Simulated assay, not measured.
Amino acid sequence: MFFVFLFILIVFILWAIVLYVRKSHWDTIHRNLLDLEDHFEGKVIRRGFAARPFFHGKVKGYPFTLNISTERLKDKRMNYVDISWDLPAGEALTISELEWLKKQRENNTEGLTVVEAENGKKFAFIHKNKKRLEQIVGYPVVKDFINHFEELCYVFLSKNGLICEFSTDNLARATEFESLNKRLDLLKKLGEAFKQ
């Protein structure tokens, strides 16, 4: 009987440690997102004790939502920051990091316009008009975006606004205000360059 009790106690302690670490992790991200509240109009929402926080409000004058998602890939857990921003564009455009896109499309990226950034990363551009796309890839704001937006998975611009996702190995660092605000400035410049 003693060994059964000891086993249950050890399992409970391990579960409590895992829960504490998870809560501490989300607490750090929650505190980081509170800086968005200090600088912009909106609220950080957290629906439970160890739940992921998210931010919803207005950033730089436009409705905005920031969520966090995770995905298990083989032996690794990937973290993503997902941004939905009501910055309407006059045309639909997708810019995606090529290696990320290959994983989504099972390596089928034939016929896509690919541009290499200064750091050597390659980005696929998707637009319905090939001639227009040739102009777009030469825009200084587009070049600046792919050269400086770190860990981009994709950004999609449309008449309904933009959706962006970037990956990170360190959510705590990626959600610090300075890091987020740099990305938001790049997204805003890109979105406003294609504004309706």
Rank of each mutant, 00 (worst) to 15 (best):
A89G: 04
F166Q: 04
L186E: 00
I95F: 00
V4E: 14
C153W: 08
L171V: 06
K102Q: 06
Q104G: 06
K121L: 10
S69V: 07
H148Y: 07
H30M: 10
F3L: 14
F123E: 00
K122S: 06
N129D: 05
L98T: 08
H148G: 04
A174M: 03
I10D: 03
D169H: 08
E106C: 15
G48W: 08
L34A: 14
G61N: 03
N129I: 09
V18D: 13
F145N: 01
A172H: 10
A92Y: 10
S167L: 15
K131F: 09
N147L: 05
Q196T: 11
F156I: 13
V155K: 01
A50Y: 09
R22C: 05
V142D: 00
F55G: 02
N129F: 08
T168N: 04
R183Q: 04
V115W: 01
F177P: 04
F145S: 00
C153P: 07
I29G: 01
K60Y: 03
M78R: 14
K103N: 09
A117L: 05
L184G: 03
L87S: 02
L14G: 11
L190D: 00
A174Y: 02
N147R: 04
G61A: 03
L6H: 09
G138Y: 10
V115R: 05
L157M: 03
L180P: 02
G61R: 07
Y80D: 05
A174P: 04
K121R: 11
T28Q: 13
P140Q: 04
L93K: 00
W100Q: 09
H56E: 09
A92L: 11
